[in-house]
């Protein structure tokens, strides 16, 4: 993304931000509430359109008008609020809205075996072990549920996966599982944009961190060349105003 801006009324949610994501790269997006993280990813996901600037995808300039176009480019989003249907089982959730059917016109008869086979493949790719595929996802742990949500996004073989707070509301053990998942994703050739409030998590999986503050990019550093302290300073603007309380 080059010099993208977005205004909501008089508020500059994003101002001339450059953002890049390499192949097989995990980029952690960091910023306080209202820094513009959500706005940025929503432009990639096709929810918002930039007022200014351009988006390049694999070297081509693209316009992403709606979530469907984002998906067809290969950009999938796993949202913070888990969009799972609790009373359905794992395959049903992964395939919701695109169930494989037998080729009998009109009836839409679901090919359950095909669905389960695919679901198992996807879970295997993420190295997730789940005993009962057919109990409602309500009975799964938070981490497993996140895995199902990620599996759903993964089904369409995306090139980019955007994860908005995938570790929020999870127990520590579960958080580690989700972080492992991100590593697995990277290994299987998916680039990831990762948003988290917990810097520790961001640092443990990201190759690079991008820091936003008040709609502007204030940092873009390889993770191994920085420290959480430095990032926090950038995030709250302490570098510019050393007198401020950190």
């Amino acid at each position: 993304m080059k010099g993208v801006s977005k205004r909501f009324g008089g508020v500059h949610a994003l101002e001339k931000v450059d953002f890049s994501l390499g192949k097989d790269e995990v980029v952690g997006l960091i910023g306080d509430n209202g820094a513009g993280k959500s706005t940025l990813i929503k432009m990639l996901a096709g929810v918002y359109r930039p007022d200014d600037g351009e988006i390049l995808f694999e070297g081509r300039q693209v316009e992403i008008h709606n979530p469907k176009e984002a998906k067809s480019l290969g950009i999938e989003t796993v949202y913070q609020e888990l969009a799972l249907v609790d009373n359905l089982d794992i395959p049903a959730n992964i395939f919701l809205g695109r169930e494989p059917t037998f080729r009998i016109p009109w009836l839409g008869i679901i090919d359950g075996q095909e669905m389960e086979r695919h679901a198992r493949q996807i879970l295997e790719r993420l190295k997730i072990k789940i005993n009962s595929m057919h109990s409602p996802v309500l009975n799964l742990s938070g981490g497993q549920r996140q895995a199902v949500a990620i599996s759903r996004a993964l089904y369409s073989n995306p090139k980019v996966m955007i994860m908005d707070e995938p570790t929020a509301a999870l127990a520590v053990k579960e958080v580690n599982k989700v972080l492992d998942l991100i590593v697995q994703l990277k290994k299987s050739g998916v680039s990831v944009i990762f948003i988290s409030h917990t810097l520790q998590n961001t640092f443990s999986v990201s190759d690079r961190v991008v820091i936003l503050r008040k709609g502007q990019k204030v940092g873009d550093i390889a993770t191994d060349k920085t420290t959480p302290d430095e990032v926090v300073k950038l995030m709250v603007g302490a570098e510019e105003a050393p007198t401020g309380v950190v």
């Binding site: 009373n87 059917t101 359950g112």
Partner: peptide, 24 residues
């Protein structure tokens, strides 16, 4: 039990918002 329509009937009762998000 066996059609998309039936699946969506259950799904809507479970989490209507999620069903809308996936474009059903």
């Amino acid at each position: 039990s066996y059609t998309k329509l039936g699946r969506y009937i259950y799904a809507i009762g479970g989490n209507e918002q999620a069903v809308r998000i996936v474009g059903i």
